[in-house]
Design a protein around this nucleic acid. Structure first.
Lengths: 150, 150
DNA sequence: CTAGTTGATTAGCACTGCTAACGAATTATA
DNA sequence: TATAATTCGTTAGCAGTGCTAATCAACTAG
């Protein structure tokens, strides 16, 4: 592989990583207002969009280990944002479901976060926005590929 | 502002946020190998690229409160990745500097990240990589603007 | 029926963010 | 000059999120 492509990758890696860190740090300021941490919010969104599922599935979806998800679910539960039921087929399993309150909170938090991030980009031209969109989709797509192959 | 531009922003914000979360989760797996957390690595890179600076400056650059940066610097120090000296002009201030070991570790972490990104984006054309680079720079620039204005 | 596997939890560690409260040093002001 | 206000950094303590190791219960294979 040519040296120039290699160093381009180095720069891209650096910049993307840094941009991601800073973007999330910025966005998190409002998540705090929701009194729900990012991991819980993210898990909740999986539940809302993906429907009820077992803890292990949720952990896999979030790329997190079972004990971590166990605690996240406990937190959601104690906040009344999710509930758990026994699985009919397998008594080891639990079925985690978002409550109505959870769905409501998710929509609010999401709207707040999106408004915040959208504010940041208020000065950008439409073509720049489209560039960002393509970049985000590229990253997501490439990550899905990489996660699948691994 | 036209409705269409507004909703484009919302979509971009949503996608970017999601892509950032997933990219960092993926990248963190390797950071763990470096035995240095993401916040320390990020602060270290500011030091390496920006030169020695006061704790407050570093906190501002990382968009983090002083106590948080105080602990991050303490961690870097105890790992021998950074050192602190007294400021000649103002005895309240400290001067934080990356050590040679810190610079070395950062380069290694970067190299690891580059390999990771290379894996993820192995299928991308050079122009797509350039698109990602522009996107990352746009995000950083917009964030700096937003942080400055606020 | 025993042995192995799987799903979830608990315990305990590390890291990262915050606010509140403090001490020390500097700057502004009476 | 003496005092007050401000600024810089630290400490203490809370919450959240990630991990591994160990454990328990339930299911599955032999």
């Amino acid at each position: 592989m040519p040296r120039s492509r290699d160093s381009l990758r180095l720069v891209v890696a650096d910049r993307l990583h840094s941009a991601a860190i800073h973007l999330l740090r910025y966005a998190r300021k409002r998540d705090v207002l929701a009194r729900v941490g990012p991991a819980r919010l993210s898990a909740l969104s999986i539940l809302v969009f993906g429907g009820p599922m077992a803890l292990g599935q949720l952990a896999a979806a979030e790329q997190v280990k079972a004990p971590t998800m166990s605690r996240i679910v406990a937190g959601l539960r104690s906040s009344g944002l999710a509930r758990i039921e026994a699985d009919a087929k397998d008594a080891r399993r639990i079925r985690v479901t978002a409550t109505a309150k959870g769905e409501r909170l998710l929509q609010e938090a999401r709207a707040r976060r999106v408004r915040l991030v959208a504010e940041i980009f208020s000065g950008l031209r439409e073509e720049e926005m489209n560039g960002l969109l393509r970049a985000a989709e590229l990253v997501e797509h490439a990550l899905r590929q990489a996660a699948g192959t691994k």
